[in-house]
Amino acid sequence: MNFDLILRIGTKLILPFILLFAIYVQFHGEYGPGGGFQAGVIVAAVIILIAITFGLNAAKRVAPRGLVERMVPLGVLIYAGTGIAGLLLGGNYLDYGVLLPEPVSGHLLGIFAVEIGVAVTVSSTMVALFYAFVERGS
């Protein structure tokens, strides 16, 4: 497969910055615009960009299909598990105040965990959708 040189080099240059931006959006979500949804979609966009520029096999080396398919339920489990942790510590389901001795830090920790769960599910689902459509065509 002979892809365009400028496209390949340009993609390689821009990829780390897109990933860095995704991480920034994920972990800065409480202080600026952003959060799990946006970060998840940006991470998925990185994988899709690799697949478009370098071919599907290169993308599968970065994000193997088995891993992606396991991450889809994992994110929901992280989310639901955060709720259950609240139950075990004596609060209500999805009540983050009891996660840490200090209620405000508990809320911050809960939001953090939940956003991670959302990001994991959204990113892996988007990549899995892309893989499903592309594999059907090849």
């Binding site: 409480e30 202080y31 209620p103 809320h107 809960g110 939001i111 956003e115």
Partner: peptide, 17 residues
């Protein structure tokens, strides 16, 4: 209550979890 200045994130993940 939540320590998160972004109200949208706080409502999304906490109040309306």
């Amino acid at each position: 209550e939540t320590g998160s200045p972004n109200i949208v994130t706080a409502v999304l993940a906490d109040y309306r979890g």
